[in-house]
Design a protein around this nucleic acid. Sequence first.
DNA 1: GGTGCAAATATAGTAATACTATAACGGGAA
DNA 2: TTCCCGTTATAGTATTACTATATTTGCACC
Lengths: 223, 223
Amino acid sequence: MVRYLIEPDPGLALRDVNSPTGSRILREGIHLMDELGLEAFTFKKLAERIGSTEVTVYNYFANKQRLLQYYYQVYWLWLAVHCEQEGRLLKDPYERLCGDIRALCGIWSTDHRAGQFDPQLLRKLVVNEGAKSFLHKNVDSDNELKLFKPYKDLCAHIAAEVKACAPRLRTARSFATTLVEMSHSLEFAMEHLPALTELSAKHDRKQLAAYLIDLTDRFVHER
Amino acid sequence: MVRYLIEPDPGLALRDVNSPTGSRILREGIHLMDELGLEAFTFKKLAERIGSTEVTVYNYFANKQRLLQYYYQVYWLWLAVHCEQEGRLLKDPYERLCGDIRALCGIWSTDHRAGQFDPQLLRKLVVNEGAKSFLHKNVDSDNELKLFKPYKDLCAHIAAEVKACAPRLRTARSFATTLVEMSHSLEFAMEHLPALTELSAKHDRKQLAAYLIDLTDRFVHER
DNA sequence: GGTGCAAATATAGTAATACTATAACGGGAA
DNA sequence: TTCCCGTTATAGTATTACTATATTTGCACC
């Protein structure tokens, strides 16, 4: 098992999360946030779970949104490393793009950990709660703090591969964002609102990837 | 000025919102929720704004999520009526689909009100806060209560028109959902995260519609 | 081995939030 | 007139999201 080195923005945490306590906060926090959802998740409950106190947790993260944004960054940083490594083996940009799409859909060839996190759990959290990282009134100030940089960087990477497949295309970035967003919101729909998609039946990520690859196929191939 | 008759699920409100107080709650609520965002919005602040008390508001809606879901329903019901009316004038399914996409992007030919609401304000609220209608732990029970029916119905309507354009397509519903979702998340990106799209420059909804129509064009036309 | 210093953790408290229980009012029907 | 019901108000509670301040712990340096 390989472990990627992932370093989220140091401004997100108030203290070094590599300390024993910081590490437990991160490790248990992702499970608790996933179980309760962001609204019901509190630092008090997390403190109880790790046998510590509320204030201890507040000394590591200013609030629960920042903790979510930490996981959000880890996820996109991990995905970028994963895409980059897989892509190195492939010469054809279209093949690389298909690999990226499969990665967006959670189809991963390896069991590489994202730092101390299980990437499948990270993806589940991002699918269910990720949008709350930016869907709030502080989105502009958070954006100035570069908190969404890993997400944007991955979109830019995918846009570059779209562009490589279809150099004359003028909406590569919008299309890359479409792929990234839909890989998550269709997964949510498959799980909770199956009327929105044909892909629901088997909860099969391969179907999801196949749909997005088909979309890409039709979009990038010049006619 | 025409006013469409829009009737959200009666289970959403606890009382008849056509009463003078109910009407003021709805009318001022949308402005306050838009100004503060769902997190900072409280029934106490709304009560102060309409010169009433917190409990009065609680007697109309069980909680602020239900109020948001009320607006969410009104928006999709309104859009469905709008699409249906515009579509009646057009014979060609592809033309109807393009009209629907423009409607999704907020390009509306008329100033038809959505009940007592300004549809542009409704759309702004749905773009910024709408996802919180379903992105929570109660999504499955809310779905059983049919709270997302208007949204699903519009997706189904658009899927039917996609199918009419490309009868052999087997992912019409997923593609309809893609159009609906991206018409909102790209608008959010244009406003707050412009790195994600080329469409930002002029904040121009026509560009947004043009991108989605181009996507549709490439997707539905058989090759 | 003692001193200083900073990181880490704890105790205690506060303002606001998201409600609920219960009471009072007010206007129309029997 | 009284009963009833829709409406609004008063008062309170448990929880949340923090902050101010105190105490402990580890370890670098003399």
